[in-house]
Design a protein around this nucleic acid. Structure first.
Lengths: 196, 196
DNA sequence: TGTCTATATGAACATACGTTCAGTTCAAGA
DNA sequence: TCTTGAACTGAACGTATGTTCATATAGACA
C-alpha cells in the first residue's frame, strides 16, 4: 500500500493506528470520526484510506493486533509449564504487567466488542477464548492434581480474569502503589481464592 | 409534563426509558439514534422530547436511577451491620443477585461513563463511590478487628467489586449454574481471598 | 532533465444526526 | 356542543458522518 524505496513515510500507517487507538479509548469507537483521527495525524480525512480499508478495519486491526501480541507475549514469558502454582503466579504477574503497559488497547479490546461486525467479532472472540484457555488450563491442571480447590474451573477462570483486568480501571504508573506491590497483593488474593 | 386526569398515557415516559436502556445496552449510547428509540416506542422522534430534555438526559436518568436503586436496595437488604464476615457474605450475595436482575442497566452504568457530560459524570461518580464505600467499610472493619487480612483495603475493595461485577459478562438465568450456586462459589472465593 | 508514483488534498456524495416547531388529532371537562 | 390542551406528527433546521475521486505535489530513478 505504501513504499518502494525509502520514500517518504512508512510511519504514517502506524501513526494512524496510534491516533485511532487513543481516540477510541478516550471517546469510544462510535463517537470518534475519521476527521478527528485525521486531524490528530495531521492529514485530511481522505488520506486515511491510503492506510486502512475503512473505519471498521481500523478497530478490528487494533483489537486483533492487541490480542495476538498478548498471546505471543505470554508464550515468551512462560513458554513451559512448571507446575500449577508456579504457572498461576506467572500468569497473574504477567497479566497485570502486560495490561498496565497497554491501557488503551485493553480498554478498547473489551469495550468495543459490540462495534465489530460479525466476521471480525468471531476472530476476536476466538483469540480472547484462547487467552482464557491459558488460565483455564492452569486451573484445571491444579484442580486435577489436588493443588487447587475450585468447584468450577470455567467460573473460576472468568472470576480471576475479571479481577485481574479490573486493575486497569484504576492502576496508573507512579500512583500510590507500584507495579510489583500490586502484582504481589493480587497474587496473594488469587492464591487464597483457589488454593486447596 | 404529562397528565391532568387519567388521560392517555403516563406510561409512555417509562416506555421511552425502557427502549433507550435496551438499545444503549445493546449498541452503545453513541451508536443509538433518537429515531431508533422512537421507532421502538412506536412514535416519531419529535415526540420523545415530551418525555426527556435531550439524549444526554436520557442516559443520565438511566444511570442515576440505577445507582440510586442499587443503594436503596442494599439498605433494605442489609440495614444493620452484624459482623464483618456476615456483612461481607450478605454483600457478595446481594451484589450478584441484584446485578443478575438488571443486566442492561449494569452494563450501561459502567460502559457509558465517558458519554456523560461533566456535571452528570460527577453525580454518577459520587453514587458509584458511595456503593464502593459500602464494601470498603466492611473490609476495613474486618481488617481492624483482625477477621480479615487484606494488605490494602482500597485495592481489595476494587478487586472484589471487579470480580463480582464480572459475573454479568456471562451469567444468564437458566444457564448451566443457577443463581444460588454462583453466589455460593463466589462467596467461597471472596472469603478465601480476604480471610485472616 | 523528465518521468513516474506514492502521498496527499479538498471538494463532493448521499445519508444520518439531534433538535425544533407549526400544525393536527382527539378525548375529557364545561 | 364547544373549548381546551396534552399527545403527537411530519417536515424542516443546520451540521456531521463515512467514503470516493479528480487533481495536485514533490521526491526518486532513469
Amino acid at each position: 500500500m505504501a513504499r518502494k524505496t525509502g520514500s517518504h513515510s512508512d510511519i504514517t500507517g502506524p501513526r494512524v493506528r496510534a491516533a485511532a487507538q487513543t481516540l477510541f479509548a478516550r471517546h469510544g469507537f462510535a463517537a470518534v470520526s475519521m476527521r478527528q483521527i485525521a486531524k490528530d495525524v495531521g492529514v485530511q480525512a481522505g488520506a486515511l484510506y491510503l492506510y486502512t480499508k475503512d473505519k471498521q478495519s481500523l478497530l478490528f486491526d487494533l483489537m486483533k493486533g492487541h490480542l495476538e501480541e498478548l498471546l505471543e507475549a505470554w508464550q515468551l514469558h512462560h513458554p513451559n509449564s512448571i507446575g500449577p502454582m508456579e504457572d498461576l503466579e506467572a500468569f497473574v504477574r504477567f497479566h497485570i504487567g502486560f495490561h498496565a503497559d497497554r491501557q488503551e488497547a485493553v480498554f478498547i479490546a473489551y469495550m468495543e466488542l459490540r462495534n465489530l461486525d460479525d466476521d471480525n467479532f468471531s476472530v476476536v472472540e476466538g483469540l480472547r477464548k484462547q487467552y482464557e484457555n491459558v488460565l483455564g488450563g492452569i486451573l484445571k491442571n491444579g484442580q486435577d492434581t489436588g493443588i487447587f480447590a475450585v468447584p468450577d474451573t470455567k467460573l473460576a477462570t472468568l472470576a480471576v480474569i475479571a479481577m485481574l483486568t479490573g486493575v486497569n480501571t484504576w492502576y496508573r504508573d507512579g500512583g500510590r502503589l507500584d507495579r510489583e506491590t500490586v502484582q504481589s497483593i493480587y497474587w496473594d488474593m488469587v492464591r487464597n481464592s483457589v488454593a486447596a
